[in-house]
Write a protein that binds this DNA or RNA. Sequence first.
DNA 1: CTGAAAGCGCTTACAG
DNA 2: CTGAAAGCGCTTACAG
Lengths: 336, 336
Amino acid sequence: MPPQRATLLQVAQRAGVSRSTASFVLAGRHQDMRISEEARQRVLRAAQELDYRPNLMARSLRTKVTKTIALVSDTIASDPYAGRAIHGSLAAAIAHGHLLFIGETDGDPVVEERLIADFLDRQVDAFIYASMFTQYVRLPKQLRDRPVVLLNCLIRAARPIHHSIIPDELTAARTLLEAGHRKGIYVVGHSGKGVFASRERLAGIKEELGTAGVRLAGVVDCNWWPDSAYDAVCRALADGLAPRALICVNDRVALGVYQALREAGLAIPGDVSVISFDDSELAAWLRPQLTSISLPHYELGWRAVETLLGPSCEPGITRLPMPIRSRHSVAKPAVE
Amino acid sequence: MPPQRATLLQVAQRAGVSRSTASFVLAGRHQDMRISEEARQRVLRAAQELDYRPNLMARSLRTKVTKTIALVSDTIASDPYAGRAIHGSLAAAIAHGHLLFIGETDGDPVVEERLIADFLDRQVDAFIYASMFTQYVRLPKQLRDRPVVLLNCLIRAARPIHHSIIPDELTAARTLLEAGHRKGIYVVGHSGKGVFASRERLAGIKEELGTAGVRLAGVVDCNWWPDSAYDAVCRALADGLAPRALICVNDRVALGVYQALREAGLAIPGDVSVISFDDSELAAWLRPQLTSISLPHYELGWRAVETLLGPSCEPGITRLPMPIRSRHSVAKPAVE
DNA sequence: CTGAAAGCGCTTACAG
DNA sequence: CTGAAAGCGCTTACAG
């Protein structure tokens, strides 16, 4: 059996004081309570000798704060890289003296409701509401009026009432602009309504290009897999598309794009620059190695709990830079 | 502000009974307490109307069981695939009406001790002690005499005192045996003492081959990266090595092996079969596609909390089958 | 069949 | 400067 933990009462008795006094010195409130230095020392020593550690459940019951937060996500723990968001959240929580509960809903609203109820029953102080893909979400009713920070997702609202931490989708466009691209820039990927991440991504790209006075030349529509991208790009090229730069929504799409360009006799990056998202293993295996932009999962997680637990958690949106791994698929465009 | 939760007292008052009575019916102990059916109905209705949910912290303080468990790992949340172990643990915990705390130590004993202390202060009921790589570990003293299940790790001991859930490392050898291989089977990877996973893996392979009366032909020593594997295999081939089957400790090593074999004019799987571990994305990109064995992370996690929370958690070792993804790198050996 | 009471381990006005 | 007391929201012998 585990060793019995000493209680505050035991500490007090050993120190020859009351529980109140012991509690105050242990809480560091000996100043305002004006505990005699001598009593203080006795308590400290007793606590040390008994290896006293406060029962946090008891404390929480009294104070109404548990110093625990819950991260509820659709399916973050299962994604290869998104798990880092958990890691980041964990680290920040610990740094703030909090512990973190994790929960996965697999996108099922019923599961979600039950999960949140469970957390609430345990009196968690606050929530991180996280999404695997960057997207708009509806906040569960149970979370209204509670401290919540959104991780990798947003809530549609006239005036933001919560804080969101999302990736800054401007990186890709900026990279191409910096390389000197001004025209013939296309996005390869699905632009449909369903996939919110791609919409955000597309919006970010357009916006960044726009501020530089550049127009996105178009979108090659396909889903997020190599075959689909390959087919779509082949077809587009056959139809006369003459891209100078292709922004792929992920590395798998880039794989299909590579194939299509190669078959069309187009050199990467000589004729066409290619840039992508995810920075998966694949990016390094491709030839030429693919310049790819990853989601800053760890930072998103860290920052989310940081702002949740930080001094002032104001509504708004924090966009975190997306780390770019520059390899060999982007070059200055050839002069016309 | 969040809506005020109703308390047991309020339910009791609304039902016109004492807290005791309310508590008993809500706990379903109306039988042994012989509460009148009428009183029972009143309580149930009151609870419903007030949307009563018990404060689990208060209950725990009284009963000494919190229905929370903690998973402490070295660095599971950060690994691309190991995160699934968390997912599996989560699911099993929920299924048992428990909630899961997660903690990462990054392998630092000081961090570990503090983390466990934090969990203990929160009165968690039990622990999962998890490791990123399959390996032998020392159990932190704080965890002695407490309910613990080891996830993907083992404790060296004369008589096992805890339960370990680990992958069954026999799969690779078995696959080759089933394909008809009997000789010229080599392992490519580091056999040094440091990397426990490879030791377990090597032991598993030898054992499985041994029971079939087959001897491992040797080990090509290298570290777990493509370049090192490439160099090592090139050198070995130059020295006259004539393998019929190569077991790579992971997919990256397999990549190096592919290159080395190709340069030596050896066909896969015609001349040499190759099998590997991890089943990463890479396995599908290689040509021929690589047959690879993955760690059953989700199942390891699930099973660990399942046995922790299950009826009888006896000391011992559970070995979970490693799923094999058969592709095109293993074939029957050519007849001599 | 039901209620009054103690107690889990804390914190915090309050009184002296 | 310090202690007695109440109370956080529950559960559970105990008495009737």
